[in-house]
Design a protein around this nucleic acid. Sequence first.
DNA 1: TTTTCATATTAAGCAAATCTGGATTTAAGA
DNA 2: TCTTAAATCCAGATTTGCTTAATATGAAAA
Lengths: 294, 294
Amino acid sequence: MDTRQLRSLIAIATHGTFARAAEAVHLTPSAVSQQIQALEHELGVLLFERSSRPPKLTPQGLQAIDMAREILRLSDDTKSSLRGDRISGTLMLGSVRSSALDLLPAAIVQMRSRYPNLKTNLRISLSSTLIADVASGHLDAAIVAEHVSIPPALRWSPFLREPLWLIAPADTKVTDPKTLLAALPFIRFRSSVPLANLIDTEISRQGITTNDIAEIDTIGSIVTCVRHGMGISVVPHVALHELKEEALVRLPFGEPQVVRQIGIVERTVSPRGEIIERLHEVLAQVCGEHGVLR
Amino acid sequence: MDTRQLRSLIAIATHGTFARAAEAVHLTPSAVSQQIQALEHELGVLLFERSSRPPKLTPQGLQAIDMAREILRLSDDTKSSLRGDRISGTLMLGSVRSSALDLLPAAIVQMRSRYPNLKTNLRISLSSTLIADVASGHLDAAIVAEHVSIPPALRWSPFLREPLWLIAPADTKVTDPKTLLAALPFIRFRSSVPLANLIDTEISRQGITTNDIAEIDTIGSIVTCVRHGMGISVVPHVALHELKEEALVRLPFGEPQVVRQIGIVERTVSPRGEIIERLHEVLAQVCGEHGVLR
DNA sequence: TTTTCATATTAAGCAAATCTGGATTTAAGA
DNA sequence: TCTTAAATCCAGATTTGCTTAATATGAAAA
């Protein structure tokens, strides 16, 4: 039994299919299948019921998941603790004002528990300002969405890759996204961040003329408006993950469904490289099924 | 990180040297050394201080040992629990009346905690009777010392391989075993068990004429007599493991030091094969540095 | 009912990892 | 200083783990 097998097991539970789990752990689906079979052989039980698609965890599989989580926690915490003596001081971190910002506190709390000697100084700003500050050394790293141009001395690594959803009030009957976009009142996300551009670009690309009735600059407010029947809009998955499934109608936005990415930009050579890598892992973990490890 | 590396790490802590740990985990010392190096690389710290012989665990090594024990406990308990649904009924177990019998309760308690549905019925008897009862099916397995003749339908697997020590009162100054055996009053272990034969055989082989002043049939009583200055004797390691180092003088008995083995005898084909294997593992574990896995 | 799609598994091959065996190095004891 | 026992290094053999391609399978759509 080894930690890579356990990570794959956890990834399947998180992402739902062997194929998506394989992506998350950077292996092929075949390798993940073999890992699970090796685990099943060692444990002497079936972890998945394979007569359905995707395979479902058996009760023994759930029990094995609990064990796996605990073992990986022990392993990761011991690694952190063993290395943690060298991780101290203050991490200067920037972030865009994003809906993903909701995930940041959970990540920072977890980092704090692993590295009691590490402080995090968080500053919110525009991504162009953040990138300049990382380049100049004022910040160690920053959380920004995917950018067309990253200076050569910096690198950007996604930790979140999430789909966009067209959301409509719960009582909406039509299920064709294009029809809805053309027919119903549209609440446009107006902001100077890449997400807004991504949404506008896809709507244009599909040649749809929306019936704009509002422009709002925060994703949370947009979700609230849609819930109250004001119209439809487009939001990233993270904005919905605490909503009940039946609170809104959700349809894939874009053909194929548009995905947006948020990542960490850092200098390619940095004394903070190790702790930033840890932060990336924790962020990816906190992101659940749409988290992406390096 | 995998469980085999962790078992090797634990084995080193238990047995004191890489070489003895290698024996315990059925690998070569070279393989164990490589495993520890791989672990050190993954954890990013040195687990052993190698400027002394044998290498000493570093503080980080001790921390890694704690993690390893916990991970292996999780792993083993989950395995037991996952399989435990099928392990029930009563295990009919026999044992010789041996000093190793002290270890048995600890092993049985641990088995009970892993397999709440399993009962153990323990019967003490002579090894010849026990072997016959295992062959006939009256017993599932029995704990007996190494025997010259095991019937073909049975197999015997050692879980304990321990050295014999010549023990003398604490104030004994002489340190040559042969001199002591010839000169001091000798308390002979008189019993119809293989251990007594082993001791007698080695004394004869060395051409030593002992000055017998007593024949006693229990090892515990022998240890008590030696402590009170009545004479010297020969006992297995297990008889001493709860005594303070300075309570007695201990010298290796035999050239090379004689080792005795205790093992489990079972039928080669048995529906109880799996649980007996578990029992063997637990017994080997409880035996500490002289425990032998299959 | 048939076809299509997406996913899981199987089989084969290759690279990496792990183990063994022998040689060398090192610490401790005589 | 020499000897002994143990750990490490090195090279080769064996095993393991991963990838790729082909096949099998369940679910959904036509």
